[in-house]
């Protein structure tokens, strides 16, 4: 056999197992833990599973008791979600059935329940509102939060602790308490039902979280790195951009996700402060409940669409998040 120390292992070493982790007892414990995690994940995923399934069921299948596990999937929910329809009188319906071939698939789906499409619904527009408002408010609050956190972390600021507490205190009031005054203010300033108004509001709310979270992350970066950069011939801002930001990447990612999730899910303010132009997805899905019978499949389809952007953002940032959400507890 060739000398191990010269040639190295025969196969590439891709994993390592601690010697004390291979006994039967340790393995059993590992398996039990794994089973518990899987069980927990399944329980957690059941509502989402029901939502996905419901989105593809017909109206009859949705309300069937016991619930149908096997069913004929249909896009009825999605068509109902994306369109405005009227119920056709029987005569008109019969007439329309004659020219079935000329109808597109959405019309055909609508006609199956005796309706015809009169135009697109505002669901897509409201989802888009959510994307714009959540996206821009997150960008602004993370950007401002980063600068503020850096200043708080590195410079002697008079009354620093009081200021930090003051920033945190903006989160202490429950949303319902401030909605009425905000509503009156927004109406006065013409911010009611505008994108700008919602972006300002969410930025203000997220900024305190961003400052506090990011300050923690920046505190952990030794200031010697920036000092080295200063001596190497860079200005404060250049050092911040080239040295601090790359090291704060996990913190920035975690803050971004938290901000996006807050702005995306926010319901109370959006319900009170928007009506048509800037209405976001959460209140509009809720109002679907009240329109001529409960369209469960449409609601499920709407919720599904609502879920996707958050999943995308979290997925993109996941490699930073794993370390980020532990708040640097496992640093080195």
């Amino acid at each position: 056999m060739a000398n191990f120390y010269e040639t190295g292992p025969a196969k590439p070493v891709t994993e390592s197992v601690r010697v004390d982790k291979v006994t039967p007892g340790a393995r059993a414990r590992h398996n039990i833990r794994a089973a518990a995690v899987i069980l927990f994940a399944i329980i957690g995923l059941i509502p989402i599973f029901i939502m996905v399934v419901t989105a593809f069921k017909t109206r009859a299948d949705v309300v069937a008791v016991p619930p149908k596990v096997l069913f004929q999937p249909t896009l009825e929910g999605f068509v109902f979600l994306l369109t405005e329809r009227v119920v056709l009188p029987p005569a008109a319906l019969a007439e329309k059935k004659q020219s079935l071939e000329q109808l597109d698939w959405m019309e055909r789906v609508a006609m199956a329940s005796g309706q015809t499409i009169t135009g697109p619904s505002d669901y897509v527009r409201r989802l888009w509102n959510s994307v714009i408002i959540a996206g821009i408010s997150t960008l602004i609050s993370v950007f401002l939060g980063l600068l503020a956190a850096y200043a708080f972390s590195r410079f002697p600021i008079a009354g620093k602790d009081d200021l930090l507490f003051f920033i945190l205190s903006t989160r202490m009031l429950p949303a319902v308490v401030v909605t009425i005054p905000l509503f009156l203010m927004y109406r006065q300033f013409g911010l009611h039902d505008t994108h700008l108004g919602m972006i300002l509001l969410y930025t203000a709310f997220n900024l305190s979280l961003a400052v506090w979270l990011l300050k923690g992350f920046i505190d952990e970066i030794p200031k010697e790195y920036e000092e080295a950069a200063l001596v190497d011939g860079y200005s404060r801002m250049q050092a911040f951009r080239k040295i601090v930001i790359p090291q704060a990447a996990t913190g920035i990612a975690a803050t971004t996700v938290f901000s996006v999730i807050f702005a995306w899910n926010e319901y109370a303010f959006a319900l009170m402060l928007t009506s048509e132009e800037a209405r976001t997805a959460p209140p509009s899905i809720a109002t679907m409940l009240g329109r001529g019978g409960i369209e469960w499949s449409a609601i499920a389809a709407g919720s599904l669409g609502f879920l996707i952007p958050v999943v995308i953002v979290t997925f993109i940032l996941r490699k930073y998040l794993l370390r980020g959400v532990t708040f640097g507890a496992i640093r080195q």
Binding site: E224, E227, V231
Partner: peptide, 15 residues
């Protein structure tokens, strides 16, 4: 400023 002094520094913690 530090950048303008044109000195080079080796830090204790390497940095």
């Amino acid at each position: 400023q530090p950048a303008e002094r044109d000195v080079a520094m080796v830090f204790q913690q390497y940095s």
